[in-house]
Amino acid sequence: MTTALSIVNSPLVSLRNVGKTFDSGTVALAGLNLDIREGEFVSLLGPSGCGKSTALRIVAGLGTATEGSVAWAGGAAGDIGFVFQEPTLMPWADVAANVRLPLKLAHADPAAADQAVAQALARVALSDFAHSYPRELSGGMEMRVSIARALVTEPQLLLLDEPFAALDEITRFRLNNDLLAVWQELRRTVVFVTHSVFESVYLSQRIVVMTPRPGRVFTEIAIDAPFPRDERFRTSAGYAGYCRTVSDALGAAMAGAAA
């Protein structure tokens, strides 16, 4: 039985005093300080529009901070996998071709790519659907393809932007477990953006609660429950206690902004 990684690991990515002001004048982030530690599962939790997605895109290099700095351990940015809120698949390509895309763009060796695709599909239990097209899949399966695509390069850092928000509860719970299983196996760093208290407590070692716009860190809460977690954790008293703590913190973050 594995337990939680100790959270004294060194930071993989450090955001210092990061601010983001859009051309429209909207200030999405101001003074955001955040360390993402090697190997941890951390959630960014906050209300809609608090800038958590913006922060994630800045870490991914898909957006630039207008203030502050983003520093990677070792200097250069490492490999990143990104999962969007929508599955964001290419409808004209079958499942295998979608998962293969990152390797294809990097001109990877075809034989090695075949193997990596097969492995990534096996991880999300979609091996039988390699030659299906996205439109033939359910929403949950499409999201699993999206996760397989993010994993196929075995990235150092996996970023997920509210990936399960559009799914029904049963599918979401299942994907939560699948994601945790993958994380346990690969031991990569995961940053998970969500607005769900319950989802963040179930998944994370650490929850970063953000304030409403302009977003910054309100508080951090460690979830020290052991892994692997399963449905029994979801109904346990410990889980309920964490949910209350996190929910109260989120409430305080919202109230602080209103005051």
Binding site: A60, L62, I80, F82, E86, L101, L105, A106
Partner: peptide, 10 residues
């Protein structure tokens, strides 16, 4: 988002 994905993979 697909354009962002292609950006991500350079």
């Amino acid at each position: 988002n697909l354009i962002a994905l292609f950006d991500l993979y350079k």
